[in-house]
């Protein structure tokens, strides 16, 4: 690989960089409370929330940095941030 002038590259190159390892707290859904409002998907800054076939959502833990925005904004408190432990 040659590095490009000005650091110009096509998008998606950080797919190789699994930033989920930076996470301290992991978001976990309680599907009993979820009303499928989609706010978590819309607000996730890392596009780490994606819809499932049944209309609920799931996390991509490879890239979720555990920022907690989804849990903070969820109107039904259906997302809990759980400490990552070995």
């Amino acid at each position: 690989m040659k590095i490009p002038i000005g650091g110009v590259c096509e998008p998606g190159t950080t797919i190789a960089n699994k930033t989920g390892g930076w996470r301290t707290y992991r978001p976990v859904y309680d599907y009993e409370k979820c009303i499928k409002c989609k706010l978590c998907e819309l607000l996730c800054p890392d596009m780490s929330v994606f819809p499932k076939e049944d209309g609920y959502f799931q996390f991509n833990y490879d890239y979720c940095k555990g920022c907690g925005i989804c849990a903070n904004e969820c109107p039904k408190s259906a997302i809990t941030m759980v400490l990552e432990e070995k």
Binding site: I3, I5, G6, G7, V8, C9, E10, P11, T13, T14, N17
Partner: peptide, 25 residues
């Protein structure tokens, strides 16, 4: 221009360079 920023062909300018690449820039 060497590169053109265009929504039809998205590009990142000044992308992340970790210690393995920054020196060369």
């Amino acid at each position: 221009p060497l590169n053109i920023l265009d929504p039809k062909k998205p590009l990142s300018f000044g992308a992340f360079a970790d210690p393995n690449y920054y020196t060369e820039f």
